[in-house]
């Protein structure tokens, strides 16, 4: 086997350079879309619309970053949309019960941690495939949320909480600031800390990682807890934005998150991914939706365009990887 893989320096492109190139391509695509929409519509480059776009993209972007940690370990987290809906109920319920705001936020995030730990427990201890355990919590969490609210919604009366999502800071929507608040530590974690390296190693070859002294179980716990906690954080943002807790909210967001991650260059086979990629992916998707609205394109077409875009981008990424071999 060994003799066939004779190394040749020129064909084995350095990995980091390629990933920067791919990031720039995505950024170029995003700017191109913005320029295009700027010419095609009068309303795209208005402060109002840009704020709106940033708000739309923000929540998917945070979900996509969490999702990426899981996908890098060669797993998948289908539950994030359900976690968003569920935690929006939890925070509304806690606030309605008179719990102080800070405590309600911390408790809601703690629920995210617990859900992620449960996923990892199912994978590591019960030997369930990630797809199955997160599919199970997807349906169960929506059910639990509906039981708590008796099928209706809980209104949130705390003004400080609901005003947050409408507020701006330095002219930029506070929701977008939250993306930065998540992305910077996520970048440090994934690209600069040893835990990030361990995520890649586990996704590439968990047995080799284990024999090199990596605590594989702990790494998997870490990935799923981060994903669910990001989702719980988005649940808080969503509750703030719509002012209610409702377990049926955020339907299908898990697919938006996975799509953003994949468009951003994450490999579903594991061991390939970044933080900036999913962020760009999320805002590309948000731009397409926003632009389609402005151009009065039937919303059904938006879904089709998104699907085609996923195929095209991932296909070109595959071509690039193959030729880099």
């Amino acid at each position: 086997m060994s003799a066939e893989t004779v190394e040749s320096g020129a064909s084995a492109a350095p990995r980091k350079g390629v990933s920067i190139l791919f990031g720039l391509t995505l950024l170029g695509l995003l700017l191109f879309l913005w320029l295009l929409l700027g010419f095609a519509t009068n309303s795209f480059w208005t402060p109002n619309n840009i704020s709106n776009l940033l708000r739309q993209g923000a929540m998917t972007a945070i979900l996509a970053v969490g999702q990426t940690f899981v996908i890098i370990t060669a797993g998948i987290d289908l539950s994030v949309g359900a976690v968003v809906g569920f935690t929006s109920v939890i925070v509304a319920w806690l606030l309605a019960a008179g719990v102080p705001l800070w405590a309600a936020i911390l408790l809601t995030l703690a629920f995210g941690v617990l859900i992620g730990a449960f996923h990892a427990f199912g994978i590591v201890r019960m030997g369930l495939p990630p797809f199955i355990i997160t599919l199970a919590t997807l349906t169960s969490l929506r059910g639990i949320g509906l039981l708590i609210t008796n099928g209706s919604t809980i209104s949130i009366t705390n003004e400080a909480f609901t005003n947050f999502s409408r507020a701006d800071f330095l002219g930029v929507p506070s929701l977008f600031w939250m993306v930065i608040v998540v992305a910077i530590p996520a970048y440090v974690f994934l690209h600069l800390s040893r835990f990030g390296r361990y995520l890649f190693a586990v996704g590439s070859n968990s047995e080799a990682a284990r024999l090199s002294g990596v605590n594989v179980h702990r790494t998997i716990y870490l990935a799923y807890i981060l994903s669910s906690t990001c989702a719980a954080f988005v649940g808080l943002l969503l509750a703030s934005r719509i002012g209610i807790g409702n377990a049926t909210q955020a339907e299908g967001w898990e697919l938006q998150a996975i799509a953003s991650s994949v468009i951003g260059g994450t490999s579903l086979f594991g061991a390939v991914g970044s933080v900036h990629g999913p962020l760009l992916g999320a805002f590309i998707l948000a731009t397409i939706n926003n632009g389609a609205n402005l151009l009065n394109v039937n919303s059904f077409w938006q879904r089709i365009i998104t699907g085609v875009l996923i195929i095209v981008i991932v296909y070109f990424d595959q071509l690039r990887r193959r030729s880099a071999r």
């Binding site: 390296r197 890649f200 190693a201 590439s204 070859n205 047995e207 080799a208 024999l211 061991a271 390939v272």
Partner: peptide
């Protein structure tokens, strides 16, 4: 199967432990 993370860089493999 046990020794290397094949689709990761040489440097990461060497530094893993």
């Amino acid at each position: 199967d046990q020794g290397l993370c094949l689709n990761l860089p040489i440097g990461l493999n060497i530094n893993l432990p």
